[in-house]
Amino acid sequence: MEQQKSRDETIVLKVKNLTKKYGERVAVNNLNFDIKKGEIFGFLGANGAGKSTTMKMLSGIANPTSGEIFICGKSLTKNFEKAIINLGGMVETPQFYPYLTGFQNLKYFASLYSNISKQKIMDIVALVGLSVRINEKVKNYSLGMKQRLGIAQALLHNPKILILDEPTNGLDANGIREIKSFLKKIARQRGTAIMISSHILAIMEDVCDRVCIIDKGRIVETKTISEIKRRYTSNGTHYIKTNAPNYAGMILEKQFAIKCKISGDKVLLTTNEKDLARIIIKLTSFKIPIFGAGEINYSLEDIYLNVVGVDNEIK
């Protein structure tokens, strides 16, 4: 019982049977998930899967058709103000008042809460890396700068959970790197839970503790990254790329009793680096051309495509 209770206290966001219908079309279908304190939770899905819609419902932008949302234990429908104050968000492209400077925009949002000092605003500006250009009018900002400002406005009031919809949109490689370390930092240091959605899997892989895959409005699965990876590594740890994979595989199995799988032009097998070198020499002695070999890097992309299916039409 106590364990349950303390677990509940660390649950920052709880979504129960969340559904959103637009007329006949069901955009979000019976979602259930929890996010814990300090956790970075990834929301993974194709365009139109329902990620943004879900996030809009969480941030109070859209009304759920049915279901419940609890932020820090407070119901969003019954206790909106007390619930939403724990949440900061950036859903779709962040929009600001173009005739105001970045700072004036932040000051306006800060004034909607109590006691957010100018110093605090400047601290957050420094945190997102906008100190140099914060006093320029937003209409002159690039998309990347607006993204940073978007994150800044979400952090002003020290929310317990941050909802970020495609936060790396418009950022260059440097920016993406910064964002990743930034997110990890605030999750670990401040204990802020973060929910991010993206279709750029490289980022999710690097940053998320757990990932929820959503397709056609439904959750397909929710697992930690390591859990997902573990499942697929049963396919093999290393690969050998050749133009005669079937022949190579047959040789390996018959001659060396090594179990392997064939995937396209790759032979997949479970082994280690040392043994791999010996296998390559052996295969070469059979005059099998080898174009590449190494450790299989299971990207979330492979997993995702595997799970969701390559055949994915736009709806």
């Binding site: 109070g60 932008i61 103000e81 939403i84 900061g88 492209t93 929009q95 008042y97 949002f109 909607l112």
Partner: peptide
């Protein structure tokens, strides 16, 4: 239309 209303939606105001 300009999208800033959604920024207001997330503030503690019904």
């Amino acid at each position: 239309a300009g999208g800033t209303m959604k920024m207001l939606a997330m503030r503690p105001y019904t």
